[in-house]
Nucleic acid binder design. Structure first.
Lengths: 329, 329
DNA sequence: CTGAAAGCGCTTACAG
DNA sequence: CTGAAAGCGCTTACAG
């Protein structure tokens, strides 16, 4: 069954494709009501579906957004992707997305791929060492918004949260359950969001003896285990995890070693996880405003796309702390 | 910065766009090596990126798959989507997906939307009352594969699992911890996968007194609480959940009511969840072969797309039981 | 009031 | 060995 096109309708109605296009597009043009009626009926009868590809080629617009997240297997990014899709759908935009898995190389491939598909703009959670990709997009005058992280040296439009402030608030609470030694497990990653979380930890834990372990994204299970062993040997009685994935790996180790939470070690983490709720001592966590983040990113991007505006600004949203048993002595 | 097209390269090289197309497409044609060289250099210099939209319009192929899942917020479908994306990417296909949220109306909108975007084929987790949509696709001769569920009355290509067998295996194990009364919580949903799971439960729990509660997808938290209350009043000492989402809602209630697992009530569930691992009494579950399911669906679909084959077959994959504390007395 | 024509960026059968 | 031309399915400025 061949797809029906404007031509088929035009032939059947005995008019030109131009007329059909005008009528179905509801463009104002002086076509007799009778003709309009007839065209609409035939379109319905043939179940005409306009070809978006042809429309896009003509208009240069695809109503498509390219989204690149850092790790789609992490519920934080999966939820973010979902919010972004829903928000974009409100404006009849489709989201095509990919996961860079924190690899700049993969991110570059995705950018090229999505650009070939003529996306109208990008929302990007940038990876380490991907500055040149961002500069490329700037130079190509492609509209984009950075999310979750950004490069302080580049002037871009960003949607981020108050990593420093919220991390120090949470660590302050955590320290109420700590005697003197506090540890943090973070990623080996120089990006701003991670640095800010660490800075917040250091700020809050000032007077205390503190230890920071940094693990590789690609070997999280083994390296978190090693890091925890080290911290426990150092006698920490409180732990702050920089992300949910680090915390879940950590819980696994703590559970295996039968460590009492919060009596022996008190805990808190960035991000959420179903595991936090069902762990025998529910884990305190920092809740990022995922819905607002996604919505804000879409709004800013569509604004750029539609107005061609070049003004760059950074939206700093507010994450909040959810205190539970794991930080109470 | 205007995107560079074949025309730009052609002009700069002093040849026709046809020649450029031939050279860059590596089509065999007799063009002097010198010209080829020159064209390639210019393309590189201008950072030429072919316009996929134009290619698609010409070829009628978009190298795009439309995926419709039932509930993207469920990790089962999120993982499935991920596997499908990865597998499709191996063959240079992009996946565009949407979530029907178990609504036939939403599913229909998605199908139309994706068809306008000229996807080459569909992978669909069908909802209740969406037979007509499937029949429509058949009649339009659009290649598609059904996943997770199917309509016994329609002859389609399906990828499913052994719901009946694996459910009865799990319930058999569960009953070792039960004295006489066993309950099941399922969705109010007439689709085959749900019916098969229930049938498996009934088959295995033959001699036992049994209770089945069915809840609405749209009011899961409240209805699971009511269902559980009812089952507990009926004195069940074992529970089988038909999906992970039902189980997680159930765990929340059981935890709140301080019910000892497995001493007072033994548990098992379909699907996985991080919650199962960290619940104080780790939950036994049925593990679906997500990777195989996704890969199989992509393979079958691409096969249909590329060969235009019309043979329909059903692949029945094997889920397996993972036994943990929650089913041991 | 309506339609022929050009054009979006490609590909490819065909002509020279 | 190379290029003009047609065409994929639309839209729209323009002519009649």
């Amino acid at each position: 069954m061949k797809k029906v096109s404007l031509k088929d309708i035009a032939k059947k109605a005995g008019v030109s494709t131009a007329t059909v296009s005008y009528v179905l597009g509801n463009k104002k043009c002086r076509v007799s009501e009778a003709t309009k009626q007839r065209i609409r009926e035939i379109a319905k009868e043939l179940n005409y579906q306009p070809n978006q590809i042809a429309k896009s080629l003509k208009s240069g617009k695809t109503y498509t957004i390219g989204l690149i997240v850092a790790d789609i297997s992490n519920p934080f990014f999966a939820n973010l992707a979902r919010v972004i899709e829903d928000e974009a759908a409100k404006y009849d935009y489709t989201v095509i997305f990919g996961s860079s898995d924190e690899s700049a190389q993969k991110s570059w491939k995705l950018i090229q791929f999505l650009q070939n598909r003529q996306v109208d703009g990008f929302i990007i959670v940038p990876t380490e060492n991907s500055e040149y990709q961002i500069e490329y997009l700037q130079q190509q005058k492609v509209p984009f918004v950075l999310l979750d992280r950004y490069f302080p040296k580049l002037s871009t439009t960003n949607v981020v949260i108050n990593n420093f402030e919220v991390a120090s608030t949470m660590v302050n609470d955590l320290m109420k359950a700590s005697q003197k030694k506090i540890g943090m497990i973070a990623y080996k990653n120089s990006l701003i969001h991670m640095e800010e979380r660490i800075r917040g930890f250091q700020e809050a834990s000032k007077a205390t003896e503190k230890f920071i372990e940094r693990v590789n994204f690609n070997a999280i299970e083994t390296e978190v285990e090693l890091a925890l062993d080290k911290l426990i040997k150092n006698g920490v009685d409180a732990l702050f995890f920089a992300t949910n994935s680090l915390a879940v790996a950590g819980l696994r180790v703590l559970q295996k070693n039968n460590i009492k939470i919060p009596q022996e070690i008190a805990l808190a983490s960035f991000d959420e996880s179903e595991a936090f709720e069902f762990f025998y001592s529910p884990v305190s966590y920092i809740q990022q405003p995922i819905k607002e983040m996604g919505e804000c990113a879409v709004q800013l991007l569509l604004n750029k796309i539609n107005t061609g505006g070049t003004e760059e600004k950074t939206e700093k949203l507010t994450a909040k702390c959810v205190f539970r048993k794991s930080t109470q002595k």
